[in-house]
Amino acid sequence: MDMLNWVKSSYSGGANPDCVEVARCPEEAYVRDTQNRQFGHLAVSAQEWAAFLSGVRADRM
């Protein structure tokens, strides 16, 4: 996991304390809490991640 390229969400930062980071691989996406990295991460398939992003972008979530 140390070799992954973690990217902070564009919704994170500033006055928003709810920060998440995402690392994407061809088959999976990993999501973790920026302020609590020691607690690990969630792993979802690339298809599930794409469906989640589609729902967020369409304001269905």
Rank of each mutant, 00 (worst) to 15 (best):
L42C: 13
A51G: 05
W49G: 01
A46F: 01
R57P: 00
S54T: 10
R60H: 09
P17F: 11
N5K: 14
M3F: 07
E48P: 01
R24T: 12
C25I: 08
A58H: 02
Y11D: 01
W6G: 03
T34L: 15
D33N: 13
R24Y: 02
N16Y: 05
N36F: 10
V7K: 10
W49I: 01
A15W: 01
M61A: 12
Q35C: 09
C19Q: 04
D18P: 04
Y11H: 06
M3V: 09
S54G: 15
G55C: 04
F52A: 10
V22E: 07
A58V: 01
E21S: 06
S12Q: 08
D18W: 07
N36G: 12
D18H: 14
E27W: 08
V22L: 15
Q47L: 14
S10H: 07
L53D: 05
A46D: 03
A29S: 13
V31I: 15
A23D: 06
Y30T: 02
A23R: 10
L42A: 12
P26T: 02
P17I: 14
D33T: 06
W6E: 00
V22K: 05
S9F: 14
M3Q: 11
A51W: 01
A46R: 09
Q47V: 13
M3G: 14
M3E: 12
Y30E: 03
D33A: 14
L4H: 07
D18Q: 11
P17Q: 10
A43L: 06
S10L: 09
G55P: 04
R60N: 07
L53R: 10
D33F: 09
Y11A: 03
E28C: 12
K8C: 08
D2F: 00
Q38V: 13
Q38K: 09
F39I: 07
Q38C: 01
V7I: 13
G55F: 00
R24N: 10
W49S: 04
T34I: 04
D2K: 13
G13C: 12
Q47E: 08
P17C: 13
H41C: 13
K8F: 06
V22N: 03
S54R: 11
W49H: 06
V7F: 01
G40F: 12
Q47Y: 03
L4V: 08
M3L: 12
D18E: 14
M3D: 13
R24A: 11
M1D: 11
A15N: 09
G13A: 09
D33K: 04
S10M: 10
F52Y: 08
S9Q: 08
D33R: 03
A58F: 02
V7W: 00
Y11Q: 03
W6A: 02
V31F: 05
S9T: 07
W6M: 05
V56D: 09
Q38N: 11
R32E: 00
A46M: 02
V22I: 15
F52E: 00
N36W: 13
R60L: 15
Q47F: 08
E27Q: 15
A29D: 05
A46H: 02
A46P: 00
R37E: 12
A51M: 06
V7M: 10
A51S: 13
L42H: 06
D33G: 10
Q38A: 15
A29R: 07
W6C: 07
G55M: 11
A50T: 11
R37Y: 07
